[in-house]
Amino acid sequence: MDPNLSLANKLALWLDLMLVQSIPIDSRRAIPWLLWAVWKNMNAVIFASTQESLGMQSQVKCNIHANWRNDKLHCGGSWITRDHQGRVGHHAREAFTSSPDKLTAELRVLIWILQSMQDLQVQEVVIGSDHCDLVEAIKRPNDWPRYRWLLHQVTVLTREFPLVCFENESSASNHVAREIAKSVMRNSMFQSYLALGGPSWLHDRIRQESAF
């Protein structure tokens, strides 16, 4: 069969085979079913590809950070979201009372962030953190018994989402979230806030970070 033929011409040739008497009757009767199976499978592949693309488009990337200095001072928490094209959605900042260690602070900030995602009705979120212990503790909570209660709260919250993923970030790719969190203590910004878009004082860095 000529590969340059149009789809309509190819179908016509296959259907013409049903009139060829030298072909066994059972084989001729199978031709329409064969064509139907090919058509159905082709549509299934196209649909699956479209669904995968739509799934990626519905996901939100959320970079997070907890700026912890010591067990006496407050710490700053922040998050910033982007869509599948790297465009900023929202960002937020919050001050937290002192925590005994860095991981406790990170988990408290994460709980606040998951609650924020629920409030914004985010369904699918990929959370990126540059604190490796946080991601490891979430993946293997039994290895971190000291943080059992906080990890339990994280687990309960994540079950409310159709999709939640956690991934490690480098400090460079998480720079914007780090700077927002640091501003709590550095600039005494203890007032919590939620805003649409990125902070104006980090616009240049946001454009650079979207390339990571």
Rank of each mutant, 00 (worst) to 15 (best):
Q191V: 10
M189F: 09
S78C: 06
N43C: 04
V122M: 08
V135A: 00
S22G: 00
H84K: 07
V20L: 04
F212T: 10
V154H: 02
L11P: 00
M189A: 12
M117F: 01
H74F: 12
S200A: 10
A37G: 06
Q208P: 09
W33Q: 12
L110T: 07
W149I: 13
L7Y: 06
M56Y: 08
S129K: 03
K102G: 07
V135F: 00
M185R: 14
K72W: 07
A195E: 14
Q57D: 08
R186H: 11
P24S: 03
S188Y: 14
W39R: 06
N70T: 04
E52A: 12
S98L: 08
L194T: 06
S53N: 08
A195R: 12
Y193S: 07
L196K: 14
W79Y: 13
W39I: 02
S116V: 04
Q121Y: 06
R93L: 09
N70W: 03
D130A: 06
I25S: 11
A137G: 04
W144E: 08
P199K: 03
K139H: 14
H203F: 09
V38N: 06
I113Y: 00
C165Q: 14
W79T: 03
R93V: 04
Q118S: 04
L54E: 13
G76M: 03
R108K: 14
P24I: 02
E179M: 10
R28C: 01
T155D: 11
H65T: 09
L107I: 04
R178I: 12
F47M: 10
Q57H: 06
Y147C: 12
K40Y: 04
R178Q: 15
W201N: 07
C75V: 08
G198C: 02
W33G: 15
V38Y: 07
V154F: 01
K102F: 08
N9R: 07
K40M: 05
I180R: 03
M42Q: 05
H203G: 01
S171K: 14
H175A: 15
P32C: 05
L34Q: 11
S6R: 01
R140E: 12
V184T: 15
S116N: 06
W39C: 05
G89C: 03
S53M: 09
P141Y: 10
S22E: 10
L202S: 03
P162Y: 03
A211S: 15
L34M: 11
F161L: 00
N43K: 08
H175L: 13
A44R: 11
T104P: 05
E94K: 15
S129C: 05
L7G: 00
F47K: 13
G77F: 11
Q85M: 09
K61V: 07
L194Y: 08
H90D: 12
L103Y: 05
W68P: 10
R29Y: 04
H152C: 09
G55H: 12
V164M: 00
R29K: 15
A95F: 03
F47Y: 07
V135H: 00
L196E: 15
